[in-house]
């Protein structure tokens, strides 16, 4: 079973995302900030990370830079989440190592489509 780490400071969004990912046969883990997410990755590297681009304190981009400096190659796949009103700088996200992006609020169809695009479903 593939694993997904959901990183978001909103408990509701983490819950919704985990439910969708479980339906898509993913084992899920949660982190509410970048520091927690880094620790989770060090304990067990997931196959994919659903990453909020607008995390407080350590931003999503900063987390991504730290993660990529600790891991080799493109693993794990990172989908960065952005919102219409507060868009993440996607160019910066690519440079930091994001593989795809998802607009919040997301639904099952969108997450499944993006995971299919990166070859995970």
């Amino acid at each position: 079973m593939k694993t997904c780490l959901v990183v978001d400071d909103s408990r509701v969004i983490r819950k919704v995302a985990c439910k969708i990912l479980a339906d898509l046969s993913f084992e899920t883990m949660e982190a509410e900030n970048g520091a927690e997410a880094l620790m989770a990755c060090r304990r067990k590297m997931p196959d994919v990370i659903l990453l909020d681009g607008q995390l407080p304190q350590m931003s999503g981009i900063d987390f991504l830079k730290s993660l990529r400096s600790e891991t080799k190659g493109n693993h794990p796949v990172v989908l960065i989440c952005t919102t219409e009103n507060d868009p993440t700088d996607l160019s910066e996200a690519i440079i930091a190592g994001a593989d795809e992006y998802i607009l919040k609020p997301f639904d099952r169809e969108l997450i499944a489509a993006k995971l299919a695009e990166v070859g995970l479903v």
């Binding site: 996607l90 992006y101 489509a113």
Partner: peptide, 20 residues
């Protein structure tokens, strides 16, 4: 819109072919 571009448009194509 952001909603329209995320449907089927990979992030690299979005960033290289569009301006925000």
């Amino acid at each position: 819109s952001q909603f329209e571009v995320q449907r089927g448009l990979p992030i690299r194509r979005l960033v290289s072919n569009f301006t925000q």
